[in-house]
């Protein structure tokens, strides 16, 4: 697969980020380099390798269904740009 300029625009839109022309060029190049590396990996013989979904050799890390304290109200909105009567306030949502 080749990453075109259009694909980069699409991904940027999905991520809600705007790119300068320079960044656009840079990311097009870098994303293609990453995919080229994947092509290289694809050439490896992995017949006897188990698929893995995680780099850690851990499984079943679980917690009990016990309530722990939630955030105190005064800390809740410290990083929020805006609030209103206990709610986070955001620009009007239009679907």
């Amino acid at each position: 697969m080749k990453i075109t300029s259009e694909v980069v625009s699409h991904i940027a839109r999905l991520c809600r980020i705007s790119l300068s022309d320079e960044e656009h060029k840079l990311f097009t190049l870098q994303l293609n380099q990453i995919l080229a590396y994947m092509d290289k990996l694809n050439k490896l013989n992995i017949e006897n390798v188990e698929p893995t979904s995680h780099v850690l050799h851990l499984e079943n890390v679980l917690r009990e269904d016990k309530i722990s304290p939630s955030l105190p109200r005064e800390k809740m909105f410290v990083n929020a740009p805006d609030k209103h009567k206990g709610y986070f306030k955001v620009p009007r949502i239009i679907e």
Binding site: D82, H84, K85, G86, Y87, F88, K89, V90, P91, R92, I93
Partner: peptide, 18 residues
């Protein structure tokens, strides 16, 4: 849960309860 103007009376904003 998002609350829109019909619930909040605010016309320029929506509210969010997490």
């Amino acid at each position: 849960k998002n609350l829109h103007s019909e619930d909040t009376g605010l016309h320029d904003a929506s509210l969010v309860d997490f």
